[in-house]
């Protein structure tokens, strides 16, 4: 797929989400201030996601944790991280972070070979730290504003920029490299396992949300906003925008 076709595909997908939400726009000043003009629709989707999580995802992730030893879960995480390194490489390069690209390339090569197809994270032991970059962050580095906050069905919190990035990143992932090849049960299995693993990794954060939230929807929105800003700036000037306590 050409870059032009990719961009068109991403734009149309994102535009569809926005058009879907236009009918549910709010004029509530609090929602607009939080860059959440679709709050009524987003809250509905949040409710749907919460139910789905209670019924399917949380039980699945707890079963996964119960039946998989810690070392096994670490291996699953390592394999998924290794598979994602081409995505990270593409984005560090697009951000002009060539040192990050070299480290990511070296990580990929080292873990895919010495690490036995990514099962072991020998690169971190060798002093090559993992980077977390995606196309949403790349757009942020390029100066693209986040756009309205979006609650995606199943996938959870996002915004227009990061949703666009999510579509784009699919094309750099090895599971998508051969788009003529139909989705095999192996590919689907890897995606499902990745989803369950990611959900299990989020358990601490979700528990913390439950313990401390006054309005869980707003807490999740704030959390997403804070974490994405931190990811885009890579922690540089992380304390510049902290509020004053009068």
């Amino acid at each position: 797929m050409t870059l032009r076709a990719l961009a068109k595909s991403c734009f149309i997908s994102s535009l569809g989400l926005v058009l879907l939400g236009l009918s549910a726009c709010t004029t509530n000043p609090q929602s607009l201030e939080a860059n959440d003009p679709l709050e009524p629709l987003n809250r509905e989707i949040y409710g749907f996601n919460t139910t789905m999580d209670e019924v399917f995802f949380e039980p699945a992730s707890k079963t996964y944790v119960a039946v998989t030893p810690k070392v096994g879960r670490e291996m699953v995480g390592n394999v998924m991280t290794t598979l994602n390194q081409p995505v990270v490489f593409a984005n560090t390069t697009l951000q002009g972070d060539f040192e990050g690209s070299l480290i990511t390339l070296a990580r990929f090569g080292m873990n895919a070979t010495l690490g036995v197809a990514g099962l072991f994270d020998v690169a971190t032991v060798a002093g090559l730290p993992e980077r977390h970059e995606d196309f949403g962050q790349t757009l942020g580095v390029w100066g693209v504003e986040s756009g309205p906050y979006l609650m995606l069905p199943v996938f959870g919190p996002s915004n227009l920029r990061d949703t666009t990035g999510r579509f784009a990143d699919r094309y750099a992932h090895p599971l998508k490299w051969n788009e003529d090849e139909p989705a095999s049960s192996t590919k689907i299995g890897i995606r499902v396992l990745n989803g369950i693993h990611q959900r299990a990794e989020l358990q601490d954060a979700i528990d913390s949300l439950d313990r401390t939230a006054i309005d869980p929807y707003v807490q999740l929105r704030t959390t997403y906003h804070q974490r994405r800003n931190m990811a885009i700036t890579n922690g540089e000037d992380a304390y510049a925008d902290l509020p004053e306590f009068d």
Partner: peptide
């Protein structure tokens, strides 16, 4: 876990 608690509470 990457979240400033008081800031988050103020938003809520």
């Amino acid at each position: 876990l990457g979240i400033w608690l008081a800031q988050s509470q103020r938003d809520q």
